[in-house]
Design a protein around this nucleic acid. Structure first.
Length: 275
DNA sequence: ACGGCCTCCTGACGGC
DNA sequence: TGCCGTCAGGAGGCCG
């Protein structure tokens, strides 16, 4: 299930197959995912050429000619499948939405939990209300220690929720937040404002590191993620603390602990990660 | 303005 | 074997 690396991999594997293709049909089999699938979507998209597939945070942007953009979010369980037209005749459970292309392919959204979304806009996609208030991309230079330290002043909340806040920085989901904090030797409950500049430098480095490593490993993390070609990712093998409660810390061998922070499972080593 | 809690939904898994 | 409770990778919205 998609965190940023999964969405990035989906974009990279899909882009070459959809770029310059023309949409011949939009099929919505489910009226509502997280939000209703816009009624006007087919009318806006049919017979338009796909200029580009890009990503902002965990949103995929299918940019069409004439200033139309389809905004796709995979939620917690969404996958985009790339199918040939003959493969696309078999519709499986939770196949909610199709883009049929004139080049022989169909892009299909399968999303068991239906937390994903399909939206469309005729304005600049980055000014869409879901995108306009997002923080910087974690892998871009504008996300750096100085930026983070500046925002951290007077912030009472804990560092884990802080880095998972999309207004601060996008794309740091629960898994990668846990991993980056472990590598930075920062306890997840540390009050944000009490971190030193040196810790922010480490933290930013490690957020970038875990995301890049995960992307390089074919994206992914957990058991049921597959990219749009159905290939599984291998980052799960690299996890140091996520999901490892009771197991020995890879550095000091004492037991990894699990606590709930902001309703999310959090894993850390209390010896290595100090407040 | 902000932080924290709730919620949408299905499937997988563990325990009895 | 099967039923039930619990938990899951996201994130907008609402409440205090």
């Amino acid at each position: 299930m998609p965190e940023l690396p999964e969405v990035e991999i989906t974009m990279r594997t899909l882009a070459p197959h959809v770029k310059n293709a023309t949409i011949t049909q939009c099929i919505a089999r489910t009226p509502k995912l997280r939000w209703p699938i816009p009624i006007e979507l087919a009318k806006l998209c049919n017979h338009k050429k796909i200029l580009q597939l890009t990503r902002r945070a965990k949103y995929l942007l299918v940019q069409l000619e004439h200033q139309v953009t389809i905004i796709i979010h995979l939620g917690m369980s969404g996958k985009l499948k790339l199918l040939t037209h003959s493969q696309s005749k078999t519709v499986e459970k939770h196949d909610h939405f199709d883009l049929t292309l004139d080049n022989g392919y169909t892009v299909r959204l399968n999303d068991p939990r239906r937390f994903g979304s399909i939206l469309v806009t005729q304005a600049k996609p980055l000014s869409h209300k879901l995108l306009i208030n997002l923080g910087p991309e974690p892998l871009e230079d504008s996300f750096n220690a100085e930026y983070l330290a500046n925002l951290a002043q007077n912030k009472t909340k804990n560092i884990k929720n802080f880095i998972m806040d999309a207004k601060i920085v996008v794309g740091v989901g629960n898994i990668y937040a846990n991993e980056a904090l472990f590598l930075s030797k920062i306890h997840p409950l540390t009050p944000t404002s009490s971190l030193t500049k040196a810790k922010f430098i480490k933290l930013v480095q490690n957020i970038k590191l875990v995301l890049k490593k995960s992307i390089a490993k074919g994206g992914t993390t957990l058991k049921d993620f597959a990219d749009s070609n159905g290939k599984l990712g291998y980052f799960a093998q690299e996890l140091q603390v996520y999901g490892k409660s009771g197991k020995p810390c890879p550095k000091c061998k004492c037991q990894i602990e699990a606590i709930i922070i902001g309703q999310r499972n959090s894993f850390f080593c209390k010896k290595c990660q100090k407040i």
